[in-house]
């Protein structure tokens, strides 16, 4: 607009910029700085904190390797399963008359806090078959009651009754049990977003494919999934960020015990229980490094949206 004073926009932005500066920008810079200082942030220690993470000298107190591996598990399994389930549910719910009810029942866990979800699932996973629903189901199917949150064995040993274990380490039963809770909470999100994307596909395009000779599977595989891929990327990036930052759920359900720590819980332990700000900051920087590619993707996507607006 002609005649608007140059500082007017800055006046409108000031409160937001101040808050973001203090609570997000400054901390990022400061954390990077602290990750090169010692536990009291007094003297420069170079890459020692990072070396601590790589060397994993105290596996019993803070098992950095296990935390990193577990985070990778969260990233891949949590994201993969949730996106796949969300996509399946989006397609299925769109084809029935009770779509609203079906969606609500899948979606409700979204509104629940991680803390409440943790209580719900500790209850579900309870070892005592008179209390734990999962174990009651397993035993009534002829299986053995399992301590889902403590069992560090792999699903293979569980299935073959404590037989050989050749699966890679972080694929532990308790990790999978935790990840499933995450899936339970986030599938609704994936379903809702993907289903909106699905509704955005013109029915005429799907009909054209049908007339062109495609069967239902070919329509899904060669028309729906490619057209939906930008939406799938949006959902996946959101879930990856969630998987990376996963804290509350693990913290309340296991407290990181039995090798279930992730980087965020280990960071919390280092910084606030052990009192080593240096290692804590280094762990936070590791998280940030993992997020960076997603940041780049988000920015690219945003720029693309702006261009095509």
């Amino acid at each position: 607009m002609v005649g608007r004073r140059w500082w007017t926009p800055w006046l409108w932005l000031a409160p937001a910029l101040a808050l973001l500066g203090v609570f997000l920008v400054y901390p990022v810079v400061d954390t990077v700085r602290r990750s090169f200082l010692d536990e009291r942030s007094k003297s420069f220690v170079g890459l020692d904190n990072y070396r601590f993470i790589i060397d994993n000298p105290q596996p019993l107190v803070s098992d950095t390797h296990s935390a990193l591996l577990n985070n990778i598990m969260w990233l891949t399994l949590f994201t993969g399963i949730t996106v796949a389930l969300g996509l399946i549910l989006a397609v299925l719910t769109g084809r029935v008359r009770y779509e609203a009810a079906a969606k609500s029942s899948i979606f409700i866990p979204m509104a629940i806090s991680f803390v409440a979800a943790a209580v719900i699932w500790r209850f579900m996973y309870e070892f005592n078959t008179d209390i734990g629903t999962v174990n009651a189901a397993v035993t009534s199917a002829g299986g053995e009651s399992t301590d889902w949150l403590r069992d560090t064995g792999s699903p293979q040993t569980w299935l073959t009754e404590r037989g050989p274990d050749t699966m890679p380490r972080p694929i532990q039963i308790n990790n999978l049990a935790l990840i499933f809770v995450g899936v339970w909470m986030w599938t609704g999100f994936a379903m809702v977003v993907l289903s909106a994307g699905l509704k955005g596909i013109s029915t005429e395009v799907l009909e054209a494919a049908r007339v062109d000779g495609a069967n239902e599977w070919q329509i899904f595989r060669r028309i729906i999934v490619p057209i939906l891929s930008p939406t799938i990327v949006v959902v996946a990036t959101t879930l990856v960020i969630q998987g990376l930052k996963k804290f509350d759920l693990v913290w309340v359900m296991t407290g990181g015990r039995a090798k279930t720590d992730v980087v965020a819980t280990l960071f919390y332990k280092e910084a606030f229980r052990v009192g080593d700000f240096g290692v804590g900051a280094a762990l936070a920087v590791v998280l940030l490094l993992w997020v960076l590619p997603i940041m780049v993707i988000s920015i690219r996507r945003f720029q693309f949206q702006e261009e095509t607006r």
Binding site: S202, V205, V211
Partner: peptide, 14 residues
């Protein structure tokens, strides 16, 4: 064995 042209053309966008 029929082909159809739709009002919105229904081209596969991808």
């Amino acid at each position: 064995d029929i082909a159809m042209v739709f009002q919105s053309y229904a081209l596969y966008p991808h």
